[in-house]
């Protein structure tokens, strides 16, 4: 299936996601306004600053439209800031969110930039070979509802999870040459549109 994938391009590392998706043969649309959402098969919300993106999501109902699509099972993948925006509960924050995943997220949960790190992550759903994962002022999921599947943990903290059509990672698969996470998300798109 020819896949048309949107990448939210308000702020952050949207270009890196676009490059990976192009390498994987997708048609990529940068999403800055609601009309950009038309005809997409899936959406990626990149890393960046969740508050900065949240402000702009509130302009002209862009966020509300994404919420609607997410509720109608459009596959959405959030990395880092994207994980924060997808979560229903953000600890100690009343910032704007898309309110889609039954997860409780903590921002900057590993600390400030000085505590940012990279590591080899075991992700059973992606095979036995570990995934190099880059965490930058990263969040993690403090709690998830029973309907949320945990794909990976780091030191007991949930850093990768899926709830039906929604996928969220605390790390940045767009910054490493290993494209298994994006391929997994494209698999979700196939599942949704081919059935």
């Amino acid at each position: 299936m020819e896949k048309r994938v949107g990448v939210l391009a308000l702020q952050g590392a949207f270009r890196e996601h676009r490059q990976v998706l192009k390498q994987l043969g997708c048609d990529v649309v940068e999403v800055r306004k609601t009309s950009d959402l038309e005809g997409i098969h899936g959406l990626i919300i990149p890393g960046g600053e969740s508050t900065a993106m949240g402000k702009q999501l509130q302009i002209n109902d862009l966020g509300e439209k994404i919420k609607e699509l997410g509720a109608k099972d459009l596959p959405i993948f959030g990395t880092c800031a994207g994980m924060i925006l997808l979560s229903k509960t953000i600890i100690d924050s009343d910032q704007y969110r898309l309110n889609l995943m039954d997860t409780t997220v903590e921002r900057n949960a590993f600390g400030r930039q000085i505590a940012s790190f990279e590591t080899d992550l075991q992700v059973p759903a992606m095979g036995t070979h570990p995934l190099r994962a880059v965490f930058i002022r990263a969040p993690y999921l403090r709690e998830v509802a029973p309907n949320v599947g945990i794909l990976a943990e780091f030191e007991g903290k949930i850093v990768f999870a899926r709830q039906g059509n929604l996928l969220a990672s605390a790390f940045h698969p767009e910054l490493t040459p290993d494209h298994r996470v994006h391929q997994y998300f494209l698999g979700m798109i196939d599942e949704h549109w081919v059935k």
Partner: peptide, 11 residues
């Protein structure tokens, strides 16, 4: 990790 934060600031 150092260049990564700058990537996140883009745009």
């Amino acid at each position: 990790v150092k260049t990564g934060l700058a990537e996140m600031l883009k745009g």
